[in-house]
Write a protein that binds this DNA or RNA. Structure first.
Lengths: 262, 262
DNA sequence: CGGGCGTTTGAATCAAATCAATTGGAGTGG
DNA sequence: CCACTCCAATTGATTTGATTCAAACGCCCG
């Protein structure tokens, strides 16, 4: 699985590891604030221009299903969703996770019907935005169109990152990268990242990452053993992340072929 | 890897196999023609409204690179491209393959810079479409905007299918599915699908599918042994596909846990 | 013709899946 | 409150599919 790694000469896992205990770097903090602002601005803009229909959801509720007629895009104001697809032969796949500020339903534009299911994993609020109304509003407000296109662009770029992760990272690194991305998403939204509630079963995480639930469990145990994560006293569903950078370092350690021992 | 398969009771691999030798079904043929028409219409529309700058490329030419300033979207009039990303730590990943009518560069919209490389794998013609000019033209022509959004939507949906394949299919099935999709893409563009020139090395295919080149080679050998594909007399780069449906059947056979022997 | 790259194939190894048993919590009802 | 069930999670033992290592082959091109 690691055959395609171009062990570039510039790679220096030691340096990366040295950065372990450093607090979140300045530029990253700025970037996070910027993204948080962008999300707030986007929501405000949509609220102002389109008065979207707000819907409160509880864990388990479905806001659209594959095959359903496409009329609305949705944007998350709060909560957390999973996006799943089902192949004709019955394989199921979690293909995306969505947080505040993320859009849902882009896949429906092309065919006039959604091709995925969107399921709430927690209580939250989604705004329904009729696609036709959005287009109409876009013609008068260039910034609305920009916001829409940027959201689609970001989704495309992110999907590629996901593919890269499943194709190039070993199981342990994939789990670490998954947690890192989650923490990062929370940070960008101004939420605390030291204590995160996954609200997904090991099976769901494993499905998303292309591995079995047992492998997820083992990876988490190893991360905990290495003190990269911790489990809250009550239950092992919530994960404590003392330092996000340590997750990145862990990924690099998984990739390093020889630990340069001695 | 197959743990998440919901072996639905409606699944019937025998039926699927029985369809092996059937010619391409009517509805699929219609669908292909429809898609071919859509691509031709899109290209005609863009040519008429935007007079895009046409550029001839030869195999190996790069039309944009990660980090490069985003100004243009591109649409392929002919030829065939690969899209690759490079992670900060040096992992490389083929994240997409593009054919006539496909757009390139959507990933650049959000950040103002491309996040991937686009490399020609064959001679062809790409049209450069300045993004700002496109947006300007869209305000007057709703159909242009529709075409753009549908292309982005299709890309998102396709990326999800890719993720599903790498996450849920064993290596052999992944290669079969890859060939099936390739043949399908050619069929939609009105090209012959019985004889296809991959123009990718085993290493590139393997990278795209998340496996090593040796595994790709073995999978192709097995497909040939099972008469699902054939190799042209000269060289093993070109693949002969007598019947696309047989590839789908092969995928299903890979998934069937027990071949219901006896 | 010979060198270099891409491909095939075999053998050994390894990471992850599978199988199996156990533990731990959350919720229910006596 | 405790016993009970149910489901999620953990952990160990074993198997297996894919990688890795290695060797040989074929083809293109100077």
């Amino acid at each position: 699985m690691l055959s395609h790694i171009n062990a570039s000469a510039t790679l220096d896992p030691i340096r990366a590891f040295a950065a372990d205990r450093a607090p979140v770097a300045k530029p990253a903090g700025d970037e996070n604030r910027r993204v948080g602002q962008r999300i707030a601005d986007t929501l405000a803009l949509l609220a102002a221009k389109l008065a979207p229909q707000r819907r409160l959801v509880r864990a388990g509720e479905v806001i659209y299903q594959a095959g359903g007629r496409f009329d609305n895009l949705y944007i998350l104001n709060s909560g957390f969703f999973k996006i799943t697809t089902l192949s004709p032969d019955g394989r199921e796949q979690v293909v995306g996770l969505k947080f505040r500020g993320d859009w849902l339903g882009f896949d429906g534009i092309a065919g006039g019907a959604y091709s995925c299911d969107a399921v709430a994993m927690d209580t939250g609020e989604v705004w329904a935005i009729p696609y036709e109304a959005l287009l109409a509003a876009c013609s008068g407000h260039r910034d609305l169109l920009t916001v829409l296109h940027e959201a689609m662009s970001r989704e495309i770029a992110h999907d590629r990152d996901s593919l890269m992760s499943v194709c190039t990272l070993p199981a342990d690194a994939r789990v670490a990268e998954f947690l890192r991305h989650w923490a990062d998403s929370l940070a960008k939204r101004g939420l605390r990242t030291d204590q995160i509630a996954l609200r997904m079963t090991r099976a769901e995480i494993g499905n998303y990452l292309g591995m079995t639930l047992e492998t997820v469990s083992r990876a988490l145990s190893r991360l905990a053993r290495d003190k990269v994560i911790g489990f809250s006293s009550k239950g092992r569903r919530d994960v404590h992340i003392p330092d996000v950078a340590a997750l990145t370092a862990f990924v690099q350690r998984c990739l390093a072929p020889a630990p340069t021992l001695q």
